[in-house]
Design a protein around this nucleic acid. Structure first.
Lengths: 213, 213
DNA sequence: CGACACTTTGAAGAGGTTCAACTGGTGTGG
DNA sequence: CCACACCAGTTGAACCTCTTCAAAGTGTCG
Protein backbone atom coordinates (compact mmCIF):
# COMPACT_ATOMS: atom_id res chain seq x y z
CA UNK A 1 0.00 0.00 0.00
CA UNK A 2 1.21 3.44 -0.86
CA UNK A 3 1.47 5.53 2.25
CA UNK A 4 0.36 9.15 1.98
CA UNK A 5 3.34 9.95 4.20
CA UNK A 6 5.87 8.39 1.88
CA UNK A 7 5.30 11.06 -0.64
CA UNK A 8 8.43 10.40 -2.60
CA UNK A 9 6.94 7.07 -3.58
CA UNK A 10 4.30 8.90 -5.59
CA UNK A 11 4.93 8.66 -9.34
CA UNK A 12 6.85 11.70 -10.43
CA UNK A 13 4.02 13.12 -12.48
CA UNK A 14 2.43 15.69 -10.27
CA UNK A 15 0.28 16.38 -13.25
CA UNK A 16 -2.64 14.66 -11.67
CA UNK A 17 -3.17 18.25 -10.57
CA UNK A 18 -3.12 19.56 -14.08
CA UNK A 19 -6.73 20.59 -14.18
CA UNK A 20 -7.15 22.75 -17.22
CA UNK A 21 -7.46 26.29 -15.92
CA UNK A 22 -7.11 29.79 -17.20
CA UNK A 23 -3.54 30.41 -18.30
CA UNK A 24 -3.04 34.17 -18.45
CA UNK A 25 0.18 35.94 -19.40
CA UNK A 26 1.96 38.30 -17.07
CA UNK A 27 4.66 40.70 -18.10
CA UNK A 28 7.89 41.21 -16.21
CA UNK A 29 7.39 42.55 -12.67
CA UNK A 30 3.63 42.28 -12.91
CA UNK A 31 1.95 41.18 -9.71
CA UNK A 32 0.23 37.79 -9.84
CA UNK A 33 -1.23 38.01 -6.37
CA UNK A 34 -0.55 40.20 -3.36
CA UNK A 35 -0.11 39.65 0.33
CA UNK A 36 -3.47 39.75 2.04
CA UNK A 37 -5.50 38.90 -1.03
CA UNK A 38 -7.92 36.00 -1.00
CA UNK A 39 -6.16 32.78 -1.94
CA UNK A 40 -8.73 31.40 -4.33
CA UNK A 41 -6.26 29.87 -6.76
CA UNK A 42 -3.19 27.73 -6.87
CA UNK A 43 -0.70 28.59 -9.59
CA UNK A 44 1.67 26.75 -11.87
CA UNK A 45 4.41 28.31 -13.94
CA UNK A 46 3.92 27.30 -17.55
CA UNK A 47 6.61 29.49 -19.11
CA UNK A 48 8.83 32.10 -17.54
CA UNK A 49 9.69 32.44 -13.88
CA UNK A 50 8.18 33.91 -10.72
CA UNK A 51 9.36 35.37 -7.41
CA UNK A 52 7.44 35.18 -4.16
CA UNK A 53 8.42 37.54 -1.36
CA UNK A 54 7.49 39.43 1.76
CA UNK A 55 8.36 42.97 2.73
CA UNK A 56 8.96 44.44 6.17
CA UNK A 57 7.45 47.75 7.17
CA UNK A 58 10.68 49.63 6.49
CA UNK A 59 11.03 48.18 3.00
CA UNK A 60 13.45 45.32 3.58
CA UNK A 61 12.45 42.56 1.20
CA UNK A 62 13.03 38.84 1.54
CA UNK A 63 12.43 36.69 -1.48
CA UNK A 64 11.03 33.42 -0.30
CA UNK A 65 11.44 31.44 -3.47
CA UNK A 66 11.92 31.54 -7.20
CA UNK A 67 9.61 29.38 -9.24
CA UNK A 68 10.50 27.92 -12.62
CA UNK A 69 8.56 26.24 -15.40
CA UNK A 70 6.43 23.40 -14.14
CA UNK A 71 6.59 24.44 -10.49
CA UNK A 72 3.57 25.26 -8.37
CA UNK A 73 3.21 28.20 -6.01
CA UNK A 74 0.60 30.15 -4.09
CA UNK A 75 -0.74 27.13 -2.24
CA UNK A 76 -1.81 28.67 1.06
CA UNK A 77 -3.02 27.18 4.27
CA UNK A 78 -5.35 30.02 5.18
CA UNK A 79 -7.90 32.08 3.33
CA UNK A 80 -5.44 34.72 2.21
CA UNK A 81 -2.00 34.88 0.66
CA UNK A 82 0.77 35.56 3.15
CA UNK A 83 3.21 36.44 0.43
CA UNK A 84 3.27 38.34 -2.83
CA UNK A 85 4.01 36.81 -6.21
CA UNK A 86 5.34 38.65 -9.24
CA UNK A 87 6.47 37.61 -12.68
CA UNK A 88 10.26 37.61 -12.80
CA UNK A 89 10.14 37.56 -16.58
CA UNK A 90 7.23 37.58 -18.98
CA UNK A 91 5.39 34.47 -17.96
CA UNK A 92 2.30 32.41 -18.56
CA UNK A 93 0.74 31.04 -15.43
CA UNK A 94 -1.87 28.37 -15.07
CA UNK A 95 -4.46 29.24 -12.45
CA UNK A 96 -6.30 26.43 -10.74
CA UNK A 97 -9.31 27.06 -8.56
CA UNK A 98 -8.87 25.76 -5.06
CA UNK A 99 -12.36 24.42 -5.22
CA UNK A 100 -11.51 22.31 -8.25
CA UNK A 101 -8.41 21.02 -6.52
CA UNK A 102 -10.34 20.11 -3.40
CA UNK A 103 -12.85 18.18 -5.43
CA UNK A 104 -10.10 16.35 -7.22
CA UNK A 105 -8.28 15.62 -3.98
CA UNK A 106 -11.37 14.17 -2.37
CA UNK A 107 -12.04 11.95 -5.37
CA UNK A 108 -8.53 10.88 -6.21
CA UNK A 109 -6.22 9.72 -3.52
CA UNK A 110 -3.13 10.36 -5.62
CA UNK A 111 -4.13 13.97 -6.12
CA UNK A 112 -4.41 14.50 -2.38
CA UNK A 113 -0.99 12.96 -1.97
CA UNK A 114 0.44 15.12 -4.72
CA UNK A 115 -0.80 18.23 -2.91
CA UNK A 116 0.72 17.02 0.31
CA UNK A 117 3.94 16.32 -1.54
CA UNK A 118 4.00 19.78 -3.00
CA UNK A 119 3.78 21.29 0.45
CA UNK A 120 6.40 18.96 1.88
CA UNK A 121 8.78 19.78 -0.96
CA UNK A 122 8.25 23.45 -0.29
CA UNK A 123 9.07 22.82 3.35
CA UNK A 124 12.30 21.04 2.44
CA UNK A 125 13.33 23.85 0.17
CA UNK A 126 12.56 26.37 2.87
CA UNK A 127 14.64 24.43 5.38
CA UNK A 128 17.56 24.44 2.97
CA UNK A 129 17.06 28.16 2.61
CA UNK A 130 17.22 28.58 6.39
CA UNK A 131 20.51 26.69 6.54
CA UNK A 132 21.86 28.83 3.76
CA UNK A 133 20.90 32.12 5.40
CA UNK A 134 21.82 31.09 8.90
CA UNK A 135 25.19 29.47 8.42
CA UNK A 136 26.70 30.12 5.03
CA UNK A 137 29.01 32.87 3.80
CA UNK A 138 28.16 35.24 0.97
CA UNK A 139 30.18 33.22 -1.50
CA UNK A 140 28.61 29.95 -0.47
CA UNK A 141 25.16 31.48 -0.85
CA UNK A 142 25.80 32.82 -4.33
CA UNK A 143 27.32 29.55 -5.51
CA UNK A 144 24.42 27.66 -3.98
CA UNK A 145 21.94 29.79 -5.88
CA UNK A 146 23.73 29.35 -9.18
CA UNK A 147 23.83 25.58 -8.81
CA UNK A 148 20.20 25.54 -7.76
CA UNK A 149 19.14 27.53 -10.80
CA UNK A 150 21.20 25.27 -13.03
CA UNK A 151 19.51 22.21 -11.63
CA UNK A 152 15.98 23.54 -11.76
CA UNK A 153 16.23 24.90 -15.28
CA UNK A 154 18.05 21.77 -16.52
CA UNK A 155 20.99 23.86 -17.60
CA UNK A 156 24.39 22.29 -18.01
CA UNK A 157 27.03 24.99 -18.02
CA UNK A 158 25.22 27.85 -19.71
CA UNK A 159 22.91 29.57 -17.27
CA UNK A 160 20.20 31.99 -18.21
CA UNK A 161 19.35 33.69 -14.96
CA UNK A 162 15.89 35.17 -15.12
CA UNK A 163 16.39 37.53 -12.16
CA UNK A 164 18.43 40.66 -11.62
CA UNK A 165 21.11 41.19 -8.99
CA UNK A 166 18.66 42.76 -6.55
CA UNK A 167 16.48 39.68 -6.69
CA UNK A 168 19.45 37.46 -5.98
CA UNK A 169 20.44 39.69 -3.07
CA UNK A 170 16.96 39.64 -1.58
CA UNK A 171 16.83 35.88 -1.89
CA UNK A 172 20.27 35.39 -0.35
CA UNK A 173 19.93 37.91 2.45
CA UNK A 174 22.71 40.07 1.02
CA UNK A 175 23.03 43.43 -0.71
CA UNK A 176 23.20 43.92 -4.42
CA UNK A 177 26.80 45.11 -4.09
CA UNK A 178 27.89 41.96 -2.29
CA UNK A 179 26.26 39.77 -4.92
CA UNK A 180 27.97 41.70 -7.68
CA UNK A 181 31.36 41.59 -5.98
CA UNK A 182 31.01 37.89 -5.25
CA UNK A 183 30.20 37.11 -8.87
CA UNK A 184 33.23 39.06 -10.08
CA UNK A 185 35.38 37.25 -7.53
CA UNK A 186 34.14 33.89 -8.79
CA UNK A 187 34.92 35.03 -12.29
CA UNK A 188 38.42 36.09 -11.23
CA UNK A 189 38.90 32.64 -9.71
CA UNK A 190 38.00 31.18 -13.09
CA UNK A 191 34.97 29.31 -11.78
CA UNK A 192 32.38 31.16 -13.80
CA UNK A 193 32.18 33.54 -16.72
CA UNK A 194 29.81 36.47 -17.08
CA UNK A 195 29.37 37.12 -20.81
CA UNK A 196 26.32 39.24 -20.12
CA UNK A 197 24.62 40.20 -16.94
CA UNK A 198 21.91 37.58 -17.18
CA UNK A 199 24.00 34.88 -18.72
CA UNK A 200 26.39 32.98 -16.47
CA UNK A 201 28.67 30.15 -17.52
CA UNK A 202 29.65 27.57 -14.94
CA UNK A 203 33.22 26.89 -16.00
CA UNK A 204 34.20 24.55 -13.19
CA UNK A 205 31.17 22.93 -11.68
CA UNK A 206 33.21 20.51 -9.57
CA UNK A 207 34.98 23.36 -7.84
CA UNK A 208 31.71 25.21 -7.39
CA UNK A 209 30.11 22.16 -5.81
CA UNK A 210 33.05 21.77 -3.46
CA UNK A 211 32.34 25.26 -2.17
CA UNK A 212 28.88 24.34 -0.91
CA UNK A 213 29.88 20.91 0.32
CA UNK B 1 -17.88 21.39 2.27
CA UNK B 2 -14.62 21.59 4.08
CA UNK B 3 -11.80 21.94 1.60
CA UNK B 4 -8.62 20.06 2.33
CA UNK B 5 -6.80 23.14 1.14
CA UNK B 6 -8.44 25.44 3.65
CA UNK B 7 -6.61 23.77 6.43
CA UNK B 8 -7.19 26.47 8.97
CA UNK B 9 -10.85 25.62 8.88
CA UNK B 10 -10.06 22.27 10.46
CA UNK B 11 -11.12 22.10 14.09
CA UNK B 12 -8.18 23.07 16.27
CA UNK B 13 -7.78 19.64 17.77
CA UNK B 14 -5.08 17.98 15.76
CA UNK B 15 -5.58 15.16 18.17
CA UNK B 16 -7.29 13.12 15.54
CA UNK B 17 -3.70 12.02 15.11
CA UNK B 18 -3.31 11.04 18.72
CA UNK B 19 -2.97 7.36 18.11
CA UNK B 20 -1.77 5.86 21.32
CA UNK B 21 1.87 5.02 20.72
CA UNK B 22 4.97 4.35 22.72
CA UNK B 23 5.86 7.37 24.81
CA UNK B 24 9.49 6.99 25.86
CA UNK B 25 11.45 9.45 27.93
CA UNK B 26 14.59 11.12 26.70
CA UNK B 27 17.06 12.94 28.84
CA UNK B 28 18.59 16.29 28.02
CA UNK B 29 20.67 16.25 24.82
CA UNK B 30 19.74 12.68 24.03
CA UNK B 31 19.22 11.99 20.35
CA UNK B 32 15.69 11.09 19.31
CA UNK B 33 16.54 10.38 15.71
CA UNK B 34 19.50 11.18 13.52
CA UNK B 35 19.99 12.46 10.01
CA UNK B 36 19.96 9.60 7.57
CA UNK B 37 18.02 7.21 9.79
CA UNK B 38 14.88 5.56 8.52
CA UNK B 39 11.87 7.77 9.18
CA UNK B 40 9.48 5.13 10.49
CA UNK B 41 7.84 7.30 13.10
CA UNK B 42 6.30 10.66 13.55
CA UNK B 43 6.84 12.28 16.92
CA UNK B 44 4.90 14.48 19.29
CA UNK B 45 6.30 16.33 22.28
CA UNK B 46 4.32 15.33 25.36
CA UNK B 47 6.45 17.07 27.97
CA UNK B 48 9.72 18.95 27.61
CA UNK B 49 11.12 20.43 24.43
CA UNK B 50 13.09 19.34 21.37
CA UNK B 51 15.50 20.83 18.87
CA UNK B 52 15.85 19.72 15.26
CA UNK B 53 18.97 20.70 13.37
CA UNK B 54 21.41 20.06 10.58
CA UNK B 55 25.19 20.31 10.62
CA UNK B 56 27.56 21.26 7.83
CA UNK B 57 30.73 19.30 7.19
CA UNK B 58 32.86 21.82 9.05
CA UNK B 59 30.68 21.75 12.14
CA UNK B 60 28.49 24.80 11.63
CA UNK B 61 25.08 23.95 13.04
CA UNK B 62 21.72 25.39 12.08
CA UNK B 63 18.79 24.68 14.33
CA UNK B 64 15.75 24.32 12.18
CA UNK B 65 13.11 24.49 14.84
CA UNK B 66 12.34 24.16 18.51
CA UNK B 67 9.37 21.99 19.40
CA UNK B 68 7.27 22.46 22.51
CA UNK B 69 4.64 20.42 24.29
CA UNK B 70 1.90 19.29 21.94
CA UNK B 71 3.86 19.96 18.79
CA UNK B 72 4.68 17.35 16.17
CA UNK B 73 8.03 16.84 14.48
CA UNK B 74 9.94 14.33 12.41
CA UNK B 75 7.31 14.10 9.67
CA UNK B 76 9.43 13.44 6.61
CA UNK B 77 8.62 13.28 2.97
CA UNK B 78 11.18 10.61 2.12
CA UNK B 79 12.24 7.34 3.65
CA UNK B 80 14.90 8.87 5.87
CA UNK B 81 15.22 11.79 8.24
CA UNK B 82 16.94 14.80 6.73
CA UNK B 83 17.52 16.36 10.10
CA UNK B 84 18.51 15.31 13.59
CA UNK B 85 16.30 15.65 16.67
CA UNK B 86 17.50 15.88 20.26
CA UNK B 87 15.81 16.46 23.56
CA UNK B 88 16.41 20.06 24.63
CA UNK B 89 15.38 19.16 28.16
CA UNK B 90 14.30 15.89 29.69
CA UNK B 91 11.28 15.05 27.60
CA UNK B 92 8.66 12.43 26.96
CA UNK B 93 7.92 11.91 23.31
CA UNK B 94 5.02 10.09 21.75
CA UNK B 95 6.09 7.97 18.82
CA UNK B 96 3.53 7.21 16.14
CA UNK B 97 4.19 4.64 13.45
CA UNK B 98 3.90 6.08 10.00
CA UNK B 99 1.98 3.03 8.96
CA UNK B 100 -0.61 3.68 11.62
CA UNK B 101 -0.90 7.27 10.52
CA UNK B 102 -1.32 6.29 6.90
CA UNK B 103 -4.10 3.91 7.79
CA UNK B 104 -5.83 6.58 9.83
CA UNK B 105 -5.40 9.13 7.08
CA UNK B 106 -6.91 6.85 4.48
CA UNK B 107 -9.89 6.11 6.69
CA UNK B 108 -10.53 9.51 8.16
CA UNK B 109 -10.56 12.52 5.95
CA UNK B 110 -9.97 14.88 8.85
CA UNK B 111 -6.80 13.02 9.79
CA UNK B 112 -5.41 13.39 6.29
CA UNK B 113 -6.22 17.07 6.46
CA UNK B 114 -4.59 17.40 9.85
CA UNK B 115 -1.38 15.91 8.48
CA UNK B 116 -1.46 18.27 5.56
CA UNK B 117 -2.07 21.11 7.96
CA UNK B 118 0.91 20.10 10.09
CA UNK B 119 3.18 20.25 7.08
CA UNK B 120 1.75 23.54 5.91
CA UNK B 121 2.21 25.06 9.37
CA UNK B 122 5.79 23.87 9.37
CA UNK B 123 6.26 25.55 6.01
CA UNK B 124 4.85 28.83 7.32
CA UNK B 125 7.14 28.72 10.31
CA UNK B 126 10.10 27.99 8.10
CA UNK B 127 9.22 30.91 5.86
CA UNK B 128 9.11 33.19 8.87
CA UNK B 129 12.49 31.83 9.86
CA UNK B 130 13.86 32.67 6.42
CA UNK B 131 12.63 36.24 6.72
CA UNK B 132 14.21 36.49 10.16
CA UNK B 133 17.59 35.18 9.04
CA UNK B 134 17.65 37.01 5.76
CA UNK B 135 16.55 40.46 6.73
CA UNK B 136 16.54 41.07 10.47
CA UNK B 137 19.24 42.41 12.79
CA UNK B 138 20.64 40.48 15.74
CA UNK B 139 18.41 42.34 18.17
CA UNK B 140 15.31 41.78 16.10
CA UNK B 141 16.08 38.09 15.89
CA UNK B 142 16.57 37.68 19.62
CA UNK B 143 13.41 39.61 20.43
CA UNK B 144 11.53 37.59 17.85
CA UNK B 145 12.65 34.35 19.45
CA UNK B 146 11.67 35.48 22.93
CA UNK B 147 8.19 36.49 21.81
CA UNK B 148 7.83 33.25 19.89
CA UNK B 149 8.76 31.16 22.89
CA UNK B 150 6.38 33.16 25.05
CA UNK B 151 3.54 32.51 22.65
CA UNK B 152 4.20 28.83 22.16
CA UNK B 153 4.63 28.05 25.83
CA UNK B 154 1.63 30.19 26.79
CA UNK B 155 3.81 32.32 29.00
CA UNK B 156 2.77 35.81 29.94
CA UNK B 157 5.76 37.73 31.19
CA UNK B 158 7.76 35.03 32.92
CA UNK B 159 9.63 32.95 30.40
CA UNK B 160 11.25 29.63 31.08
CA UNK B 161 13.58 29.11 28.17
CA UNK B 162 14.41 25.45 27.74
CA UNK B 163 17.50 26.04 25.59
CA UNK B 164 20.94 27.41 26.26
CA UNK B 165 22.58 30.37 24.58
CA UNK B 166 24.32 28.21 22.01
CA UNK B 167 20.97 26.80 20.91
CA UNK B 168 19.54 30.28 20.55
CA UNK B 169 22.58 31.30 18.53
CA UNK B 170 22.33 28.32 16.21
CA UNK B 171 18.64 28.96 15.67
CA UNK B 172 19.14 32.66 15.00
CA UNK B 173 22.21 32.36 12.79
CA UNK B 174 24.34 34.25 15.31
CA UNK B 175 27.15 33.47 17.72
CA UNK B 176 26.68 32.72 21.37
CA UNK B 177 28.47 35.95 22.29
CA UNK B 178 26.15 38.06 20.17
CA UNK B 179 23.10 36.45 21.75
CA UNK B 180 24.50 37.06 25.21
CA UNK B 181 25.39 40.67 24.49
CA UNK B 182 22.01 41.32 22.91
CA UNK B 183 20.18 39.98 25.93
CA UNK B 184 22.25 42.16 28.24
CA UNK B 185 21.55 45.14 26.02
CA UNK B 186 17.81 44.45 26.18
CA UNK B 187 18.10 44.22 29.95
CA UNK B 188 19.96 47.54 30.05
CA UNK B 189 17.17 49.07 28.00
CA UNK B 190 14.75 47.85 30.64
CA UNK B 191 12.79 45.66 28.22
CA UNK B 192 13.62 42.35 29.87
CA UNK B 193 15.09 41.02 33.08
CA UNK B 194 17.40 38.04 33.44
CA UNK B 195 16.98 36.70 36.98
CA UNK B 196 18.69 33.45 35.98
CA UNK B 197 20.14 32.30 32.74
CA UNK B 198 17.11 30.25 31.73
CA UNK B 199 14.49 32.53 33.15
CA UNK B 200 13.67 35.68 31.25
CA UNK B 201 11.08 38.28 32.22
CA UNK B 202 9.45 40.32 29.49
CA UNK B 203 9.11 43.65 31.26
CA UNK B 204 7.78 45.67 28.36
CA UNK B 205 6.14 43.48 25.83
CA UNK B 206 4.71 46.39 23.84
CA UNK B 207 8.16 47.79 23.28
CA UNK B 208 9.50 44.37 22.40
CA UNK B 209 6.75 43.84 19.86
CA UNK B 210 7.46 47.21 18.32
CA UNK B 211 11.01 46.04 17.65
CA UNK B 212 9.91 43.22 15.38
CA UNK B 213 7.12 45.22 13.72
C1' DC C 1 33.41 22.82 48.83
C1' DG C 2 35.49 22.42 44.49
C1' DA C 3 35.36 21.37 39.58
C1' DC C 4 33.42 22.01 35.35
C1' DA C 5 30.44 23.77 31.96
C1' DC C 6 28.01 27.62 30.50
C1' DT C 7 27.64 32.52 30.25
C1' DT C 8 29.23 37.12 30.22
C1' DT C 9 32.42 40.67 29.09
C1' DG C 10 36.35 42.77 26.61
C1' DA C 11 39.22 43.96 22.65
C1' DA C 12 40.60 43.27 18.10
C1' DG C 13 39.37 41.89 13.53
C1' DA C 14 36.66 40.47 9.36
C1' DG C 15 32.85 40.16 6.36
C1' DG C 16 29.36 42.54 4.61
C1' DT C 17 27.00 47.11 4.29
C1' DT C 18 26.54 51.81 3.06
C1' DC C 19 27.20 55.66 0.38
C1' DA C 20 28.92 57.45 -3.76
C1' DA C 21 30.71 57.51 -8.29
C1' DC C 22 31.41 55.29 -12.55
C1' DT C 23 30.41 51.95 -16.31
C1' DG C 24 27.84 49.57 -19.59
C1' DG C 25 23.94 47.59 -21.78
C1' DT C 26 19.41 48.42 -23.47
C1' DG C 27 15.84 50.71 -25.44
C1' DT C 28 13.81 54.57 -27.52
C1' DG C 29 13.27 58.53 -30.32
C1' DG C 30 15.03 61.55 -33.68
C1' DC D 1 20.48 53.58 -37.95
C1' DC D 2 22.70 56.24 -34.71
C1' DA D 3 22.65 59.03 -30.45
C1' DC D 4 21.33 59.81 -26.23
C1' DA D 5 19.22 58.72 -21.91
C1' DC D 6 18.32 55.74 -18.37
C1' DC D 7 18.45 51.93 -15.48
C1' DA D 8 21.06 48.06 -13.80
C1' DG D 9 25.31 46.61 -12.52
C1' DT D 10 30.07 47.35 -11.03
C1' DT D 11 33.70 49.28 -8.37
C1' DG D 12 35.76 51.96 -4.54
C1' DA D 13 36.33 53.56 0.22
C1' DA D 14 34.73 54.19 4.79
C1' DC D 15 32.03 52.31 8.20
C1' DC D 16 29.54 49.13 11.15
C1' DT D 17 27.63 45.05 12.85
C1' DC D 18 28.73 40.84 14.14
C1' DT D 19 32.55 37.52 14.81
C1' DT D 20 36.65 35.80 16.82
C1' DC D 21 39.72 35.03 20.35
C1' DA D 22 40.68 35.53 25.14
C1' DA D 23 39.65 35.89 29.93
C1' DA D 24 36.79 36.44 33.86
C1' DG D 25 32.47 35.43 36.11
C1' DT D 26 28.48 32.51 37.54
C1' DG D 27 25.86 28.68 38.60
C1' DT D 28 25.35 23.81 39.18
C1' DC D 29 26.30 19.21 40.52
C1' DG D 30 28.92 15.72 42.42
Amino acid sequence: MLSPLRIDAVPTTIDVLAIPGACPRFSRDEEIFGEGEAADYVYQVVTGAVRTYRILRDGRRQIDEFHFAGEYFGLEMGETHRITAEALTDASIRMIRRGALSDLASKRCDAARALFRLTAEGLQRSQDHVLMLGRRSAQERVVGLLLDIAERTNARAELDVPMGRQDMADYLGLTIETVSRTLTALQDEGLIALPTVRHIVLKDRKALERKVD
